[in-house]
């Protein structure tokens, strides 16, 4: 067992979980004000592309991150306008945004980045340097756990606590709950429902595109077609499994990240003397979410004004 469950595995789990936490919290920002967001996947993907392009053209990962966030906000704004101003069904708009992101990112990748490769220029993106550890690298367990972690990961781990505090103790947080639970009542109480919704959806764009930027600028160093690879939907599962609560969603995302890391680590090795199919581990987040939806893990209570 020792050779599987070591600091390295948990370090990898945190790395895998980072984009999931960010995207799940993005989903939270939008769903807590009543806007269903199945477009997280698209925002991650466009964020990843914008991060790669920005960093490639300027040589700076920070500019890449900025580009990702800008594009994420733009895409989120489209969702907000479609669902609020045009009164489009939230699911339909989300589906369209995922398709748009898939089509546009692949199209632009082929137009703008592939030709660079063909011209002999590099398509490897300048990345954020990992957090320097000083002397801690030699510590047992902790050293392997903290090695090669990005400050984006630290941000993702702190964010749920910040959000929880904001949601619980600030006027903004109380307003979010009011809008998410009964927008009509909130409006009569003088809460600017539309503004709350627009802002919530735009914050979801910020966080989800940061998840995409992490994939490029901290994890892999390059953009690949459809590289979000379903992470937006795992994040959605984490949000629901965590019952739309910041700590719940982040905790679920951490757990799902752990399954991914374990799956990559095992690659056919036996676990506890059993040969676990890797597909089963990859399936677990979705299976667990279905079990949660069955109500076997306690009552599920989504924001009651979701989708209106």
């Amino acid at each position: 067992m020792g050779e599987i469950f070591d600091g390295q595995l948990f370090g990898a789990a945190i790395r895998q979980a980072t984009p999931l936490i960010l995207a799940a919290l993005g989903g939270l920002m939008s769903e807590r004000v009543g806007v269903i967001n199945i477009g997280l996947e698209g925002k991650i993907l466009m964020g990843a592309f914008a991060a790669a392009l920005g960093a490639l053209l300027t040589g700076s990962p920070l500019v890449g991150l900025g580009c990702a966030i800008l594009v994420g906000i733009t895409l989120a704004l489209l969702h907000a306008v479609a669902t609020q101003a045009w009164r489009t069904d939230h699911i339909v708009s989300g589906v369209a945004i995922n398709l748009l992101a898939l089509g546009l990112s692949t199209y632009l990748f082929r137009q703008l980045i592939v030709p660079r490769e063909e011209a002999g220029q590099t398509s490897v993106v300048p990345m954020f340097a990992p957090i320097p550890l000083g002397g801690m690298e030699s510590l047992p367990l902790l050293g392997a756990l903290l090695k090669d972690q990005s400050w984006l990961t630290v941000l993702a781990l702190l964010l749920p606590f910040v959000l929880l505090a904001l949601l619980t103790y600030t006027r903004w947080g109380l307003r979010v709950n009011a809008v998410g639970n009964d927008s009509v009542k909130a409006r009569t109480m003088g809460v600017p429902v539309m503004r709350m919704r627009y802002l919530g959806v735009m914050w979801s764009g910020v966080f989800a595109s940061m998840a995409g930027a992490f994939l490029v600028l901290a994890a892999t160093g390059q953009f690949r077609e459809n590289m979000s690879a379903g992470r937006g939907f795992i994040a959605l599962a984490a949000l629901i499994f965590g019952r739309w609560h910041p700590l719940g969603a982040a905790g679920a995302a951490l757990g799902f990240g752990f399954f991914e890391a374990l799956q990559m680590r095992l690659q056919g090795q036996p676990l506890f003397g059993m040969q676990l199919p890797t597909d089963l581990l990859l399936m677990l987040p979705y299976l667990l979410t279905v079990v949660a939806l069955m109500g076997l893990l306690g009552k599920m209570k989504p924001p009651s004004d979701l989708g209106n």
């Binding site: 009164r87 069904d89 339909v92």
Partner: peptide, 24 residues
């Protein structure tokens, strides 16, 4: 992927014009 982009635009357009306020 030109086809995918066009498809996405088409969905958004149809949803915005014909499917307003459809509540699930």
């Amino acid at each position: 992927e030109i086809a995918v982009v066009v498809q996405a635009v088409l969905i958004l357009y149809v949803a915005a014009v014909y499917l307003r306020k459809r509540r699930l």
